[in-house]
Design a protein around this nucleic acid. Sequence first.
DNA 1: CTTGGGTCCTGTGCGC
DNA 2: TGCGCACAGGACCCAA
Length: 294
Amino acid sequence: MPYKAAMPELPEVETVRRGLLPALAGQQIRKVLVRRSDLRIPVPADFARRLEGRRVTGIGRRGKYLLASCDGGLTLVIHLGMSGRLTIHGPDSAGARPGRFAHPAPLPGPHDHIELLTGPGARIVFSDHRRFGLMTLAEEASLPQHPLFKQMGPEPLGPDFTPALLAARLRGKDTPLKAALLDQHVVAGLGNIYVCEALFRAGLSPERRAGSLRGKSTVRLAEAIKTVLEEAIEAGGSTLRDYAKADGSLGYFQNEFRVYARAGEECSSPGCGATIKRVVQSNRSSFHCPRCQR
DNA sequence: CTTGGGTCCTGTGCGC
DNA sequence: TGCGCACAGGACCCAA
């Protein structure tokens, strides 16, 4: 099965965050265009009015969500869903750096739903042909209580994410490990690709009951999750320097997948020799090595 | 409470 | 060459 496009999971979102920083942080949002408001969560009717004139003070990330802090305590919340893209355009004249910005500015495409204008010709375009993504606003002070974040699990790259914490999150769960790790309430930011890859690196079967992990397995899993995410961010960062779009889709980490989309290929583990299998769990493909992963 | 399945959306790639 | 359909999947929603 050929690899198609990068799905925005934590590493891709982090790559987008870093790519967006120089174009948006410190800038004033002068004008907001909402061409379509029927995203996963409807864009609020007062979205443009509340955002226009604010200065972006920083860009953070929580799980797969981007959080653009604006002055006045307002936060622009962005989720890329499956197919969301943020493209940086302009500016028109001074400062345009070929290869860094997409230019000249094309006419808006049918899936360019929201534009943030930051200067003459300078803008950030949010496009999402499947409209699984969203853009909305929230008061920064109330973000922890926001429905999107209130129940969200720990950041896997945060200092709190220890094997003990992971063990506590998985304890008592009767679901397969695959489903448990896809659940954003257990750990934030993992999607199908990195769950597959982390489970391979940890030597754990995606069909293993989540509550059955003990000591060393939990340690291996927590370390595998951190390692695979860090490696993917590193790969994304290395390509971001060279390409125009802050969409996280041009990373080379796809070449590093050891099981994802590799059904039928030989396991890359030295001396294993088994064939990578694809099984369907929760209507999602799970790729794994039946010999290395128990 | 937990768990699992359906659903949304549209571009891509395959078989016939 | 064109048509129809399976597939990709993040996260919400609801039923059991």
